[in-house]
């Protein structure tokens, strides 16, 4: 970089400062070069394709399953409504709305269950002595790094009609004939709770680890009960971890495709399966694109209350 490029402030500065400024500009340029390959890859293969999805969602479909290069809002209308072929009137698309509702409900239930199980588990791990804590953490991480598909297959095995759970319930005399658990919404909720539980535990654990035990002791010394100490001291302090965990569970649950496909059978679809249908037998790519964007919008809506909760928690305790 020549002196002519330098800003006036640099010219006025002593030579040492000028050299410093030149050096930092050179460094910035190097840093940009280093980041470029990764940035270009993500731009070309993640950001650009997302723009293409937006484009496709406002294109017209032709009758052979392809697209026509003409703008149309039809795909977006089809997300929520179905058009009567003869009269052209719109009626709510019951099947789509049922699937959207099932996805939201199951994602919320999954988030709730992972909260109920995950927060105490994370607290338990976080309060172990330092030398055993890493082992507990490792025990949580192992299932997390095991293929999601395999874990779904495993939970399916457990709840089959002649699987271990039914066998155990029959043995105990709690039921007279095997329960149909596989291919129900229950199976999907259970499967998602199982596969996404580590995503709740890990961030909550990170927050628990940063807790100052003196605060809990202080609350307890001031005659707060254990339960009150948990609700009023511990929970507010680990709130950022709890919110992060809830998002990490909610987002993949809402968009899950593998779990409902394997555990839900053919009839209990979620948004992910509905999207896939449009690219498979449905041959309606614009609708598939609009549904994918609907999923993104739903996730965006979920982010708003979380951001508000996080901001509300700006005041530090202690």
């Amino acid at each position: 970089m020549s002196l002519a490029d330098a800003r006036p402030a640099d010219l006025a500065a002593p030579p040492a400062r000028q050299a410093e400024a030149r050096k930092s500009r050179r460094e910035a340029r190097t840093r940009w070069w280093l980041a470029t390959p990764a940035l270009l890859t993500i731009a070309a293969l993640s950001l650009l394709p997302l723009c293409i999805v937006i484009l496709y969602s406002v294109l017209e479909r032709d009758s052979y399953g392809g697209i026509l290069w003409a703008l149309s809002g039809e795909a977006w209308i089809e997300v929520f409504f179905q058009r009567d072929i003869f009269e052209g009137t719109l009626a709510p698309a019951g099947a789509h709305l049922a699937i959207l509702w099932r996805s939201i409900r199951l994602a919320l239930i999954t988030t709730g269950l992972t909260l109920l199980i995950g927060v105490p588990t994370a607290y338990f791990i976080g309060t172990r002595p330092a030398h055993t804590r890493n082992l507990w953490l490792f025990a949580i991480t192992v299932p997390f790094w095991t293929s999601l598909l395999i874990r779904i297959i495993a939970i399916g095995e457990l709840i089959r009609r002649d699987g271990l759970v039914n066998a155990a319930l029959l043995q105990m005399g709690l039921i007279d004939e095997p329960l149909q658990m596989l291919f129900t919404d229950f199976a999907i909720g259970l499967g998602m709770t199982y596969v996404y539980l580590p995503l709740m535990v890990l961030p909550v654990y990170a927050a628990v680890q940063r807790l100052d035990p003196r605060l809990m002791e202080a609350a307890y010394d001031l005659y707060a009960s254990r339960a009150r100490t948990f609700w009023r001291v511990i929970l507010p302090l680990i709130r950022p971890g709890v919110i992060a965990g809830s998002l990490l569970v909610f987002i993949p649950s809402l968009g899950d495709y593998v779990t409902p496909r394997v555990l839900g059978g053919g009839s209990n679809l979620m948004i992910g399966n509905l999207i896939e249908l449009q690219f498979g037998q449905g041959r309606n790519w614009p609708l598939g694109a609009a549904l994918a964007l609907t999923l993104m919008i739903l996730i965006g809506l979920a982010l708003i209350p979380c951001a508000r909760l996080l901001r509300g928690k700006a005041a530090p305790h202690g």
Partner: peptide, 29 residues
């Protein structure tokens, strides 16, 4: 009265349930 942060009642049991839930299916498979 001392607060032992390791002994919130029920938390150990829930953690045990969580580990059982995480490992039982894989062990069966």
């Amino acid at each position: 009265r001392r607060f032992d942060p390791q002994t919130l009642p029920g938390f150990g049991a829930i953690a045990a349930l969580a580990f059982a839930l995480l490992y039982l299916p894989l062990i069966v498979l």
